[in-house]
Computed example of a mutant assay.
Amino acid sequence: MNDLQTLRAAMTPDEPSQDVIDRSRHRLQNRIRGGRPSGRRSGWLIAGAGLATAAAAAVAIAAMPAAPVDGPAVRTVTGQEVLLAAATAAERSPEGAGTYWHVKVTGADEYEYWIKPDGQSWMRGAKTGGKVMPLRALSATPFSLVAVDLTLEQLRALPTDPGELKAWIAAALERSDARTSAGELTASDREQAGFQSLISLVSTLPATPGVRATALRAIAEYPGVENLGTVPGGQGLRLPTGERLVVDPATGRVNGTSIFVAMDGAVHKVADPAGARIDAEWTDTLPE
């Protein structure tokens, strides 16, 4: 039995008796009658200055109770199990293809960008007045792991072993010339940037299915990942640093987040209490 099958079995209770079904339906009917209740480095530096206190500001994603009112007890599915099931699903998903890598973050504000592998890029958001605007600078390394910039080829060649992937990111951060307002990156800064790099790999970067699955497994290795229950888009997870993700274990997709890494490497905290929806895919369409 694989991770996804284990997760489904854990989340699916035994069939309740007809008496339980009748009583639950009666309660539901009564409730219904009663009413329904700027530069690539500088972008990271500006955001990075507040990384040490960012966990306290992470937003809450409301969780819905998953257990029935009556019936047999349902085993609690851990956050680690959700991530491992999502990794299995991600590994089997198609990679997709297109001219532009398109990312749309929808919350209280909307942020959207398109990137070609050659470095041409466009964005739409509050800074562009809601219009699609080309970015003047042509970057040879248009994809960002927080403080580490990569080509598409380098991104696709990342290790597919969790330990090796974390070691690769750590070594790249050691070589990085990124700095905070207080000076060079401390060990704590690099550790947090490494964790946020894993989040960007599973949410906003065109990683291969194998690399995305590896990043999900690497996140699962951190202690303290908590499953908040069923939410729109999947399972709500609280990460050890306080950030929230919405992960669909059936598809391996991250559909919601309280944190995202923008195309310039800046780390953004989402102010919307419901978090932000993430849509990321290859496309051949560039809006006018």
Rank of each mutant, 00 (worst) to 15 (best):
L51M: 12
P65F: 01
G125R: 03
V211K: 00
T88E: 15
S203Q: 07
W101H: 13
A220T: 07
Y111R: 14
W114T: 07
I21H: 08
A271P: 01
V247R: 03
S139F: 06
E184P: 05
A89F: 08
A280E: 13
R23Q: 15
V74E: 08
T78M: 07
T78I: 08
T230D: 03
G98E: 10
L150R: 11
L51R: 14
G129K: 00
D177F: 03
P273R: 13
N2K: 14
A73N: 09
A178W: 02
S188T: 11
D118E: 15
P94A: 12
T186M: 08
A73Q: 10
Q235N: 03
R217A: 10
R124Y: 02
T186D: 10
A108R: 15
P223N: 06
K104C: 06
L216N: 07
W44S: 05
W101Y: 11
V132D: 05
A167P: 01
K166Q: 13
P16G: 14
G50L: 11
V148T: 05
S144H: 10
T257H: 05
A207V: 01
A218D: 06
N255L: 10
I259D: 01
R175P: 01
E191Y: 02
D264S: 13
A57Q: 11
E221K: 10
A193C: 08
E243Y: 04
H102G: 09
T180H: 01
G79A: 09
Q235E: 14
L216Y: 03
P249V: 08
E153C: 07
A250R: 09
V20M: 13
L228K: 06
I278G: 04
A213D: 00
L83Q: 12
P159S: 07
R31E: 08
T78S: 15
V103R: 07
Q5C: 07
P159F: 09
R25L: 09
E221I: 03
E226H: 07
N255M: 06
A274K: 08
A182F: 01
R175K: 14
N227P: 02
V148M: 02
G35P: 03
E153K: 13
L152N: 11
